[in-house]
Amino acid sequence: MPDAALSYTGLFVLQALAKGYRYGFDVMEVTGLPSGTIYPALRRLEGLELVRSDWEDEGLAQKDCRPRRRYYELTPAGKRRLADAEARYRAVQRLFPRRSSS
């Protein structure tokens, strides 16, 4: 697994999943990023094995007359990366206490 830098989006998505938001829509709502950013990020993170997805039980969905849902959650690797990234961002914050407008 390449130890690549995590984008803001990736960090936000990991953080949201860690906080227990598991649908794409919910992640979008809580991060405030558009769906066109969230979903591709989820795909990438999944490709990097930082995130894994599970499909809802078929029977449950049929009972509610709706398609199956797909849940996302962090892998252990994902949790480690998130912890790393959090530490790095805190360091950055100490470096630049003001003006981090972006």
Binding site: P2, F25, P34, G36, T37, Y39, P40, L48
Partner: peptide, 25 residues
């Protein structure tokens, strides 16, 4: 606007299928 995200998502699947790293974004 939520549904509009489906377009980029569908396209991103092609890239994710190649399992490219985040930096390649």
């Amino acid at each position: 606007s939520f549904a509009a995200g489906a377009g980029p998502d569908a396209l991103s699947l092609h890239a994710a299928a190649r399992s490219s790293p985040i930096v390649a974004s």
